[in-house]
């Protein structure tokens, strides 16, 4: 059901599915990159752990609190970076950031579920929700180098 088409471009089915059934929820034990980040203006927070071996992200998990956009974005992000090299993950993050800003982005990279977040760019107040997990990932991978 929809009472507002504009809202439907934001709350896509895929997003709500990730919000309701988050993938990779939890905390990785042992030697892993460990990042806490919050969005001080709204109170959203994420705890991201990633296992990086030989320049490759072999596992990623997140815990956190926040709205449907921030939590689904975190779920999609962890799903997308698993199995990617650090360089590939950072390149994906760049594409995501450009997509959020409504800019042209490299569409040769397969975004999968993440593409559903494109509608967020039309809701300026919610962009920060979507980018929180990605910023945490970037910070983690940069400090890991």
């Amino acid at each position: 059901m929809s009472f507002d088409n504009r809202l439907d471009t934001l709350y896509r089915q895929v997003i709500m599915d990730h919000y309701k059934n988050p993938r990779n929820r939890g905390v990785l034990e042992g030697d892993s990159v460990d990042i806490n980040m919050n969005n001080p203006t709204c109170g959203d927070r994420i705890h991201l752990t990633m296992k990086v071996e030989d320049g490759k992200i072999v596992d990623a998990k997140f815990e956190g609190e926040g709205c449907s956009i921030s939590m689904s974005s975190a779920s999609m992000m962890t799903q997308a970076i698993k199995g990617k090299t650090v360089e590939e993950a950072l390149a994906l993050s760049k594409v995501f950031s450009e997509m959020m800003q409504g800019k042209e982005y490299d569409d040769s990279i397969d975004l999968g579920d993440i593409e559903a977040l494109q509608g967020v760019s039309k809701f300026p107040a919610r962009i920060k929700c979507a980018t929180l997990a990605w910023k945490a990932m970037e910070k983690g991978l940069h400090t890991d180098k």
Binding site: C42, C67, S68, I69, S70, R126
Partner: peptide, 21 residues
């Protein structure tokens, strides 16, 4: 329903409320 999502839906109805801490 997270309060940010509440505020976004209300905004689509022209209603301005605050959401957050």
């Amino acid at each position: 329903v997270h309060p940010h999502d509440v505020a976004t839906v209300l905004d689509a109805e022209g209603i301005a409320v605050r959401a957050g801490h």
